[in-house]
């Protein structure tokens, strides 16, 4: 018995930001801006960040949590429509354990002078890893951090 399993799930989150779609898009496409909000919690320390923002390009974010566990995000960009949409697939690893693969769709629509952002994550959690909602909570925190960046 291998203990292999794959548990599929989806969640969607929405935010309205008081910034135009072009500016919200830049917060995802410009590595210097993204580095200010796409980060772990206070006790998390950056080990490696690399980003090649184009279709087929890869991104990596690796950091050490306060617990000592190293988390690694490895992503590939699948679709980019400037100012409107970004789709990427990504792996998460905790130390050497591959815990998930996800497809993320970020849609940006004008809303008044601002932007409605919708993020949809279709994911598969691997080999008994129990997410228990933490990915969705983590994504909410990232969207809050993006909001703080856009208010700078």
């Amino acid at each position: 018995m291998s203990g292999r399993s794959a548990t599929h799930g989806t969640f969607t989150l929405e935010r309205v930001y008081d910034a135009a779609p072009a500016r919200v898009f830049r917060a995802w496409s410009d590595v210097a801006i993204k580095a200010r909000w796409f980060v772990g919690p206070a006790d998390w320390h950056l080990i490696e960040r690399a980003m090649d923002f184009r279709v087929g390009g890869k991104e990596r974010l690796r950091g050490r949590k306060g617990s000592g566990v190293v988390s690694t995000f490895d992503s590939v960009y699948l679709d980019i429509v400037a100012g409107e949409r970004i789709i990427y697939s990504y792996d998460m690893r905790l130390d050497d354990r591959h815990i998930s693969v996800s497809l993320a769709t970020v849609e940006l629509k004008p809303e008044g002078a601002g932007t409605r952002l919708t993020i949809t994550e279709q994911g598969v959690f691997l080999d008994g890893y129990d997410d228990a909602g933490s990915r969705e909570r983590g994504t909410r925190i990232l969207l809050d951090q993006l909001g703080a960046e856009l208010r700078r």
Binding site: S2, A6, L78, L103, G123, V124
Partner: peptide
């Protein structure tokens, strides 16, 4: 994204017809 010999394969792919990307998928 993930290969476990004889047990599992996970990949992401896009389909494009002409100039139009028509889908992005994650397949297990």
């Amino acid at each position: 994204h993930d290969i476990v010999p004889n047990e599992r394969i996970i990949f992401a792919y896009t389909m494009t017809i002409g100039e139009n990307r028509i889908s992005a998928s994650l397949t297990t």
